[in-house]
């Protein structure tokens, strides 16, 4: 029995883009990065949050009065939730007559998470799939994540982790022992640009990457290709050089998309990428070519 809890914002079955075979992806809530293009804004804050649907709201203001933390305020006939102040009392849910609020995030025990992902074990076995832990940033909840990974090992399930790698090297290295595949995000090769786009620099990330290579882990680097941030051919050269130096051979490109746009409104968060055009593989053929020319195995 393991009653330790992890804060998740989703468990997604039949994931086919996060590692080999058919997988279940476990999304951990809370992330040290603040990427402008983040398509899961609900993944960022490491606590339970409320989201608010303006279409359902009748502006009765009951939630404003009802919030014990004063996290909800009125602005121009609409309301604004201060995510940082919200403590997750859920009073707004009870006050709201039109069900305009919903909860983002749930604490789940290791047992519950493991039993949920084991439900699809037949599919993992048949397809060569398994479980992928992702976020947010799973390393922020490394201890409980390791508990989950140990349980999965007992059932012989393939374990992948997708991470920004932004964690203390000690934490990271300990974590490495429990995984079969590392999907390592790299947002930018340049420390200054990295900080611009994500709020943190990439020093520690690159160090952890090297450590993982040294350990002989199977690694796929994943690059979100973001317009006007890292989508020039020069950037492709920069990434290729960086990865070759570290010794990573496999790269997945993730073209920028707008699936997350609506979520920003629900969470009363500012979205800097509004109306930026989505990218598709066919827009990035030359970009991909640069990686391939540099000897990397690069796919979408």
């Amino acid at each position: 029995m393991n009653q330790e809890k992890a804060l998740l914002f989703n468990i997604q079955k039949f994931s086919i883009h996060d590692g080999p075979g058919i997988r279940t992806t476990v999304f951990f809530k809370g992330c040290p990065l603040r990427c402008h293009w983040c398509s899961n804004p609900e993944s960022q804050i490491g606590k339970i949050q409320v989201a608010w649907n303006s279409l359902k709201c009748i502006s009765c203001q009951k939630c404003v009065k009802g919030c014990p933390e004063g996290a909800i305020s009125e602005a121009k006939g609409s309301i604004v939730i201060d995510g940082e102040r919200c403590k997750g009392w859920q009073e707004c849910l009870k006050e709201c007559p039109t069900d305009s609020f919903q909860i983002e995030g749930e604490y789940k025990t290791v047992d519950k998470i493991v039993s949920e992902v084991l439900k699809d074990i037949a599919f993992y076995e048949e397809s060569g799939g398994g479980v992928t832990l992702t976020g947010g940033e799973v390393l922020q909840q490394a201890d409980v994540a390791i508990e989950i990974l140990k349980e999965l090992k007992k059932h012989n399930i393939h374990r992948a982790v997708e991470t920004t790698g932004y964690a203390a090297p000690k934490v990271f290295e300990k974590f490495l022992e429990h995984i079969d595949l590392l999907l390592f995000d790299l947002k930018h090769y340049d420390p200054v640009k990295h900080k611009e786009g994500t709020g943190v620099d990439n020093m520690i990330i690159l160090e952890n990457m090297k450590a993982a290579v040294k350990k002989g882990k199977k690694i796929v680097a994943r690059i979100p290709v973001i317009p006007n941030f890292n989508d020039s051919l020069q950037d492709a050269e920069g990434f290729s050089k960086c990865l070759n130096e570290i010794g990573i051979k496999n790269v997945d490109l993730l073209p920028f998309h707008q699936f997350g746009q609506k979520k920003y409104d629900l969470l009363c968060m500012e979205y800097k990428m509004k109306d930026v055009k989505q990218l598709h593989p066919e827009d990035l053929m030359d970009y991909q070519e640069v990686f391939i020319r540099n000897g990397l195995n690069c796919k979408f």
């Binding site: 058919i22 599919f123 048949e126 397809s127 060569g128 799939g129």
Partner: peptide, 9 residues
């Protein structure tokens, strides 16, 4: 192939 694996399962 993943769709096929799902059917097979």
């Amino acid at each position: 192939m993943k769709l096929i694996a799902m059917l097979r399962t």
